[in-house]
């Protein structure tokens, strides 16, 4: 590959990392609390609020069932409102985040619901407030599962980020389509796929290692 192409590849990699990193972080900031709320507001849960639970559930499902490429286009007005433009890498972070929040919320909800009810009961018996239970029981006990879920979310975001070329988002997927496919440069396509594989492997391995480290449930005696 020519030095120009290599520099394009490096730029695209950085753009992908920027988009996935920013959307992952913002998605976690939104999805983590939303997921916890979904998990604790159901009927018979810690802080029952069936109306909130129902409405939030419907919104999350609606966002999750919209195909990503349609979401990108559909929220262009919102994207413009937030970033001042609807084109470019930074603008692409908006739809990625909007897709990540409900995804991460469901993952967090699942992990929190996995926490043994006996632990909640024990904390209640000790006079814990509901928010103490969330902060000191549910989140620490669900942390390992949450980290695995965030790993999954990051890998999915890499996949989604390939589609934001449609709004000039750039990144590895866009490079692969425009140079590898449309300009018949198979070596570019191969390089893009290779970089993506390495990225996903790194994220998966790192995420699993982190999750294992915080999981104290299966220690050898």
């Amino acid at each position: 590959m020519s030095p120009q192409l290599l520099s394009l590849l490096a730029d695209a990699t950085l753009q992908t990392l920027w988009m996935v990193g920013a959307a992952g972080l913002l998605g976690t900031l939104g999805g983590l609390p939303l997921g916890v709320l979904l998990a604790v507001t159901g009927r018979g849960d810690l802080l029952p609020h069936p109306i909130f639970n129902r409405v939030a559930g419907v919104v999350v499902n609606a966002a999750r069932s919209t195909p990503f490429i349609i979401l990108v286009v559909a929220i262009i007005p919102f994207t413009r409102l937030v970033t001042g433009t609807s084109i470019g890498t930074t603008a692409a972070i908006v739809p990625l985040t909007v897709a990540a929040v409900p995804f991460i919320a469901r993952i967090v909800e699942g992990a929190v619901r996995e926490v043994d009810r006996g632990l909640i009961e024990a904390a209640e018996a000790m006079g814990a407030t509901p928010w103490q239970i969330v902060a000191k029981v549910l989140l620490p006990e669900a942390l390992s599962g949450i980290l695995l879920g965030l790993t999954l979310a990051a890998v999915s975001l890499i996949g989604y980020s390939a589609m934001v070329g449609a709004v000039g988002g750039g990144g590895l997927g866009d490079l692969g389509i425009r140079y590898g496919y449309q300009r018949f440069l198979p070596e570019v396509m191969a390089a893009v796929v290779l970089v993506l594989i390495v990225l996903v492997q790194l994220i998966q391995t790192g995420g699993e290692a982190l999750a294992r480290r915080v999981n104290k449930r299966n220690l050898k005696t």
Binding site: D116, G118, L119, E121, A122, V137, P140, E141, V214, K216
Partner: peptide
């Protein structure tokens, strides 16, 4: 209160 299945926090 103590419990049949102990209900200890695994993360602590």
């Amino acid at each position: 209160m103590i419990f049949q299945h102990f209900n200890l926090l695994s993360s602590r």
